[in-house]
Design a protein around this nucleic acid. Structure first.
Length: 420
DNA sequence: TCTGGGGTCCTTTAGCAT
DNA sequence: TCTGATGCTAAAGGACCC
């Protein structure tokens, strides 16, 4: 049996752990730049704050209803996530960490009653040790465990936060209940198409013809259908190396100036280089893209990217910047107001297995130089050593007006308990 | 004024070789 | 040498996830 464990309103719950005054209060957490809502407590959901809502459009509601607003604090959430996942790992060796707040677990050798007790103990243990509430869904396939998890969340009173799809009747009942759009793997486009056909519930989706599903929703859709029918097509995935690393940002305003854009692209590239070196990889392809503001209907929209093959695998920021700049000049068009840009490195290879090209050789001095720069930046703070292409004044600071403290990872921020 | 970021997998298409 | 069929690969874009 697969179990999907999901932390309830994870980011909001993290903020609550160290600030008990927030219990039962509506909370929202904002994306980078305090742009849009990416997490809501149940109370905030009840007040009608939608997922992905632009923060500036909801400021009045936040004030009116006394909704507590937080900038995202990834140091805190990452650390809390690791604590939760560690505990889950003590209850079964077969665990796939699917995202910051979700894991698939696999349980074998339990009878149904034994498993239920085991899961109850696991839930209690996580909540007691970390303060993060979780929901658990159990079923014979991953996709059905997602469905079961949804039921456990939707009916907390009746399920106690744990729901198991054990019988055929339970499976059918769940599918009759689940709206098409809430199926894991069905996004907005597929939803539109399926609803246009008059389908409303997951059950109707499973009654479609296999060939039709294959044709219109690819093998991914077909796998999904099989999974909902109870046939396992997905299995637990162990740790896999990243296939690409991205650094992308929206700008605070729109910019036309090539020198500004160049500075941004160089900075993104340097961050990609740091990430590559941290996981001891080199890349062989670098992709650079530019985009105008997609919300600005008055201006012409522009979106262009280009990928460049490198003559040798590298993680030297100096080399990467050289190629990124070349790529940028091919896609930059004067007169466009740019709002977002990014750099993605791919075709990653292990640093140890670097293949040397015959004629175009990397400068051997780069490797020790990068090592020293990384050490300095680690010891003395992120921006101790910069490259000439980067903006030395660091004027592109993110908006983070509602940031909480790093309670669990920074000694200065540790929580204080005062006697009254 | 103010709308995120980081991933995966799949399909389509164009270019090239056989 | 030309042509059409076929097959491979890589880039680009679209769908999805959290």
């Amino acid at each position: 049996m697969f179990a999907l464990v999901d932390c309830n309103n994870f980011y909001a719950s993290c903020e609550r752990v160290f600030n008990p005054n927030l219990r039962n209060q509506p909370i929202v957490v904002l994306s980078n730049n305090d742009g849009c809502v990416i997490a809501r407590s149940n109370e905030a959901k009840a007040l009608g704050v939608p997922m992905g809502a632009p923060a500036f459009k909801f400021e009045r509601l936040f004030k009116q209803k006394n909704i507590k607003v937080f900038s995202s604090n990834y140091a805190l959430y990452g650390d809390m996530s690791a604590r939760v996942m560690n505990i889950l790992g003590e209850f079964t060796p077969d665990i796939e960490i699917y995202s910051i707040d979700e894991s698939f677990l696999y349980f074998k050798g339990f009878d149904k009653i034994g498993l239920e007790a085991h899961l109850q103990q696991m839930k209690k243990c996580v909540e007691k040790s970390t303060g993060i509430p979780i929901s658990i869904g159990v079923a014979p396939t991953k996709t059905l465990s997602k469905v079961a998890n949804r039921i456990s969340k939707k009916f907390p009173q009746r399920t106690g936060g744990i729901y198991m799809i054990k019988t055929e009747e339970q499976r059918l009942k769940a599918l009759r209940w689940l709206p098409i759009k809430d199926i894991w793997g069905i996004g907005r486009q597929h939803q539109k198409r399926l609803e246009a056909l008059g389908l409303q519930r997951a059950e109707a989706f499973t009654q479609l013809n296999d060939d039709w599903v294959r044709k219109h929703m690819s093998v991914v859709g077909l796998r999904l259908k099989k999974e909902l029918e109870g046939e396992q097509t997905l299995s637990l995935e162990g740790f896999v190396d990243k296939k690409a690393i991205a650094t992308t940002r929206s700008f605070d305003y729109e910019y036309k100036d090539l020198s500004y854009i160049t500075e941004r692209i160089c900075s993104f590239t340097i961050v990609c280089g740091e990430k590559l070196r941290r996981q001891e990889s080199c890349c062989q392809t670098i992709y650079v893209f530019l985009r105008s503001n997609r919300f600005n209907e008055k201006a012409a929209s522009y979106s262009k990217g280009i990928s460049v093959q490198l003559p040798y695998p590298t993680n030297s920021s100096l080399d990467l910047v050289k190629f990124a700049k070349k790529a940028l000049h091919k896609i930059y068009k004067p007169g466009i107001a740019y709002k977002k840009a990014g750099v993605i490195v791919s075709k990653l290879t292990p640093q140890s297995a670097k293949q040397t090209a015959l004629f175009t050789e990397e400068n051997p001095k780069h490797f020790p130089l990068m090592q020293q720069i990384d050490i300095l930046n680690q010891s003395y703070g992120k921006h101790t050593v910069k490259f000439g292409n980067q903006d030395l004044k660091h004027r592109w600071k993110m908006h983070q007006d509602h940031l909480s403290q790093n309670y669990s990872t920074k000694l200065d921020d540790i929580i204080e308990i005062k006697a009254i």
